[in-house]
């Protein structure tokens, strides 16, 4: 007997974490993204690759509740509500879900951190947002996480303005993982960093994703990052998903002309 895809989704132990149906976003005549559908399970890392203008950032914003789509649905298995269309939730509920169940790591740490507040407070804020009120416990948790992202603990009370780019990004990662989210969105998390800093950060992220059993959606234009981090890939061009599959398959045996172009364009050193 051969298992079919249908039988898989019935398996209770493997409830989809995220289910996207025919997601589209148009800006008037301009297509942001078109007819995107996929599913994600807990512990999976999905890479969205594409060049500038491919629609990947639009897609990420629609998926993370920041941009209502023109058509389609985004269903997430929220801890409070179960599987729910995120745009059907009231805004307070959606915002709370974003705080409780999700993380969002921005490309530029300045967009994801409070620059005028200490590094430790930035990380502890995620806990305070969840209603925690014990300073000592929160500070310790914050220290533990800063340690985990390999930040010098003596800098915990300094403001992120005084950190390097790599350090700022580490704080952002800690801030987005300390509350044990189910799903983390990452928008080019290592873009703009030095190569060696990038490499170490990617290691760290890989380890954390594996240790925490996190699900993550990672948007990147860097194929090497995609290969390293993602279990599955979606390749986007002009707003459409042109190819999708396991990372090693998409990169080793690309079918779509655009994917072949992307893969062959990657410089080998």
């Amino acid at each position: 007997m051969t298992l079919t895809a249908q039988q898989e989704t019935v398996d209770q132990a493997d409830q989809p974490l995220l289910r996207v149906h025919s997601l589209s976003k148009h800006y008037g005549m301009i297509t942001g993204c078109r007819d995107v559908s996929f599913e994600m399970r807990p512990g999976e890392v999905l890479g969205i690759v594409g060049e500038s203008g491919s629609g990947k950032t639009t897609l990420l914003n629609c998926l993370s509740g920041r941009l209502p789509p023109s058509q389609g649905r985004v269903e997430f298995n929220a801890s409070r509500h179960g599987l729910v269309d995120i745009y059907n939730l009231s805004e307070p509920d959606r915002r709370r879900m974003q705080r409780e169940d999700w993380g969002f790591v921005h490309q530029n740490p300045r967009d994801g951190l409070r620059m005028r507040v200490s590094g430790g407070a930035n990380v502890a804020e995620s806990l305070m947002n969840l209603g925690r009120r014990h300073y000592g416990d929160m500070r310790q948790a914050s220290l533990n996480w800063l340690n985990r992202v390999e930040l010098d603990l003596s800098r915990i009370d300094d403001k992120p303005r005084t950190y390097s780019g790599g350090m700022q990004q580490r704080v952002q990662i800690a801030r987005n993982l300390i509350h044990a989210p189910r799903l983390v969105f990452m928008d080019e998390p290592t873009g703009g960093l030095d190569v060696s800093v990038q490499a170490r950060l990617l290691d760290l992220m890989r380890e954390l994703v594996r240790d925490l059993g996190l699900a993550a959606i990672l948007v990147t234009h860097d194929m090497a990052v995609a290969r390293l981090m993602a279990d599955r890939l979606m390749v986007m061009k002009s707003g459409a998903v042109v190819e999708t599959g396991l990372t090693d398959q998409v990169l080793d045996d690309p079918q779509h002309p655009y994917t072949q172009l992307l893969v062959s364009s990657v410089l080998q050193i």
Partner: peptide, 20 residues
């Protein structure tokens, strides 16, 4: 087709999740 958990899985047609 590959034996997996007591049944055959068709690698060419299975979902990426299944192949993984």
């Amino acid at each position: 087709e590959v034996q997996h958990d007591g049944a055959f899985v068709d690698i060419t047609k299975a979902s990426p999740h299944m192949v993984a």
